[in-house]
Write a protein that binds this DNA or RNA. Structure first.
Length: 485
RNA sequence: GGUAGGAUGGUCUAGCUUGGUAAGAUUUUUGCUUCGGGAGUAAAGGAUCCAGGGUUCAAAUCCCUGUCCUGCCA
């Protein structure tokens, strides 16, 4: 069968695997575990995602850098918590040809330790600040066996921006800007609903002062960690000697922030969340092909229909210069099969044209989200198509924009947490602390409920609790607990 | 990490128990008839049976090692 054989909400795992294979997104048969070739259809979208993200970062004052993939071990060891956090996940290059290297080289799992070494050379005075740069590329992490295409891989594709400021206040502002950027990209461009949490101390980026991470709200109450932004403070600038001369001619250490949207993972979230039983659904601007025209003819009407269909293609292309339009005139594939194929691949707008339409000077337009068919007069088609294009992503966004509050259930005891998680809810509870002294309580939640403390909301919080849901001590924080992918 | 399965034309699967000519569907190519929601028909093409070793007159099949994949549990 060419289509997906299961319903998304009945067997998500099977659905996702089939989607990836049948829509030709990736091929998991590459013979190194956790490394996955992305096929053309996914690669086109991923490059579009990079482009829109990079343009946004540049508009906000970041400049691009291209950095080496290998990092010497000694850089790696400079920040103690960073080493401790990342060491188990590093691929090491130990040989050059047959010769053992004098110093091992890490395949970058993230680029702090490559960049800041150079930042200490590039940043001289307060006139150089703020210093905002980003890197696009692959990073490598030796994950466990539990890999899944796009969601969790041993090599993944991301952007990381690393910014240096003269004051902690400016750095904090940058973290806020990063969160705004995330909303603009994930919600507005990619139609993925998210919410930001300040992560608890025990779940921070290794070496950070604070970590703020977006959780995507997937259906069925599970969340998926998407971009995170970290206030590194001076934790890295001191060991890496990133300092500048201030107005008073005194040396100061910079305040650093870093932000890492993992494009490949966001892609995974996008296809998993927006897709339906027929296959992929993509936001208008992210689709490799946005409009497909399907001619419908019998042997007597073939020539006439094809001529009209080509005319239609030319007119639309002239009118919608930015839009990628394809005329599917393969005559060895039946119309029905074309319908299914392009739905599987998530083309937002399908236009059918057959003899009856030509008689009535119209076409049939089919919406990928609703599946609804609409007759559109040829004279109205230009307007129809451009308003369709500008509404499509909005429609998609509305369809999946879950009211966060409606997924949330309050809980006062561990049993209530367990019950609510079992009902696919995100749980809101009181918690003794999100500093390290709260970790034992979090471990109990992990063990008993098999869900994780995601942290406290970054935007406003209206719920207040007296006691910690686990230990019963006074609750310092209101936190959220959820299952994650 | 534990555990249970699996790997056979491009794809999906049968064959393995009981060793003996690798089979089917689909895909691909070609012809004819078709085409408004996964077309029909005829022919052709397509395999180091995951890799390496062992047992045997003979191995896809039995044994050992490795690699990769999948499910479940932690």
């Amino acid at each position: 069968m060419k289509g997906i054989s299961v319903k998304k909400n009945e067997d998500f795992s099977q659905w996702y695997t089939e989607l990836i294979q049948k829509a030709e997104l990736a091929d998991i048969r590459y013979n190194v575990r956790g490394l996955v070739p992305y096929r053309a259809w996914a690669s086109i979208t991923i490059r579009k995602m990079y482009r829109v993200y990079e343009e946004t970062l540049e508009r906000k004052g970041h400049l691009p850098l291209i950095m080496p993939t290998l990092i010497p071990e000694r850089n790696f060891r400079l920040e103690a918590k960073h080493v401790e956090g990342f060491s188990p996940g590093v691929f090491w290059v130990t040989h050059g040809g047959d010769k053992e290297l004098e110093e091992k080289l890490a395949l970058r799992p993230t680029s702090e330790t490559a960049l800041y070494q150079m930042y200490s050379l590039w940043i001289r005075s307060y006139n150089d600040l703020p210093f905002k740069r980003y890197v696009s590329g692959q990073v490598f992490r030796y994950e466990g066996a539990d890999t899944r295409a796009f969601f969790r891989a041993r090599e993944f594709h991301w952007i990381e921006s690393h910014d240096v400021f003269a004051t902690e206040e400016e750095a904090r502002q940058q973290v806020i800007e990063d969160m705004e950027t995330t909303y603009e990209m994930l919600q507005d461009e990619f139609a993925i609903p998210i919410i930001f949490f300040q992560r608890p101390e025990w779940d921070k980026f290794p070496g950070a002062v604070h970590t703020y991470a977006a959780d995507a709200l997937m259906d069925s109450g599970k969340v998926l960690q998407l971009p995170s932004t970290h206030l590194l403070g001076q934790n890295f600038s001191i060991p890496f000697d990133v300092k500048f001369i201030d107005e008073n001619n005194e040396e100061q250490y910079g305040y650093i922030t870093c932000y890492g949207p993992a494009i490949s993972r966001i892609y995974g979230a996008m296809i998993a969340l927006l897709g339906d039983d027929n296959g992929l659904v993509l936001p208008w601007d992210m689709a490799p092909i946005q409009v497909v025209i399907i001619p419908i003819y019998s042997s007597g009407t073939k020539e006439e229909v094809l001529v009209k269909a080509r005319e239609l293609e030319t007119t639309l292309k002239k009118y919608m210069k930015e839009t990628i339009i394809k005329l599917d005139d393969r005559d060895y594939v039946s119309p029905g099969e074309k319908f299914n194929e392009w739905e599987l691949k998530g083309v937002p707008l399908r236009i059918e044209i057959g003899p009856k339409d030509i008689q009535n000077e119209q076409v049939v337009a089919v919406n990928r989200i609703s599946g609804k068919k609409e007759r559109v007069k040829l004279v109205d088609l230009k307007n129809y198509a451009s308003s369709y294009a500008s509404n499509f992503t909005k429609e998609l966004k509305e369809k999946y924009s879950v009211q966060f509050e409606t997924q949330v259930q309050l809980a006062q005891t561990v049993d209530e947490v367990k019950k609510a998680i079992g009902e696919n809810k995100i749980v809101c509870s009181g918690f003794c602390s999100i500093d390290l002294d709260g970790e034992p309580c979090a471990e109990i939640i992990e063990k008993e409920v098999k869900a994780f403390v995601r942290g406290k909301r970054v935007d406003s919080e209206k719920h207040k609790f007296e006691k910690c849901v686990v230990c019963g001590k006074p609750a310092k924080e209101t936190i959220y607990i959820a299952r994650s992918y």
